[in-house]
Design a binder for these strands. Structure first.
Lengths: 122, 122
DNA sequence: ATATCATATGAACAGATATTCATACGATAG
DNA sequence: CTATCGTATGAATATCTGTTCATATGATAT
């Protein structure tokens, strides 16, 4: 076998391209970071939460506003806000009986914006 | 009741802030777009797929390379590549028996980059 | 204090999803 | 053309996730 070829290491019954694999391994972020990253995107991967985030693009809203606006139950909205809070995507303030939610920073806009660009090109 | 107050419309037993809700409703993207957007992020919301994408950041790889690199079975990788292909996040070319995958465009990098920035600040 | 409003929370259920196993397909070498 | 390698696919299973229902909490007004 020609040693100049990349195929050197065994992978079950297959051969891997060893040098490339090693290079990639060195550059890969830690597993935990990649896991956290997936968890973050999981939050964006639900249309209810996306709707809530988009609604908050425009204005600060209370739970009932969002429920009415999006045609959802108060409970469903509340559960999803919990997820968004846990991931620091929204912040909130109390005003009497109402709790007003808003976007916590501009990363949300950036991330959603990039996603929008991608689907526009599909 | 003071008409200068925002609370005008009924929502079950609650009142919504009508003017704000209407403003937001006008600005909201179509439901279908938001659904597609959620579907896109759902693709990023899995650590196996994130790992595959990050691996492809660095180099073009065949299925077996990825399986070995990431400690996954060939089948698992193949199933996830199917999802990534369906969402136009990766492209591929055949070279003999191997099929080499690579990132299809720079949106992937942008989206992952924004996500990374967010989790760094948590 | 008590009733009511706005929101949160816990349990239960239904639907979605990732992995595995078995197998099929397409390309190549002999 | 047959065997083998690399990859893809379908079915089955276990886990995860979102919604609903019932109920709890926290704030306000009377």
């Amino acid at each position: 076998m020609n040693m100049a070829e990349k195929d050197t290491e065994h992978c079950e019954y297959m051969y891997v391209h060893e040098d490339v694999v090693k290079k990639v391994m060195d550059e890969m972020p830690q597993d935990e970071v990649l896991y956290d990253l997936a968890e973050l995107f999981k939050v964006f991967g639900d249309s209810t939460r996306i709707k809530i985030l988009y609604a908050l693009f425009e204005a600060e809203l209370c739970v009932c506003d969002m429920a009415q606006l999006l045609g959802l139950t108060q409970t469903a909205v509340s559960h999803q806000l919990r997820v968004l809070k846990a991931n620091k995507l929204v912040k909130f303030r109390r005003e009497g009986k109402n709790i007003f939610y808003s976007l916590s920073d501009d990363h949300v806009r950036s991330i959603l914006g990039q996603g929008m660009e991608h689907i526009r090109e599909l």
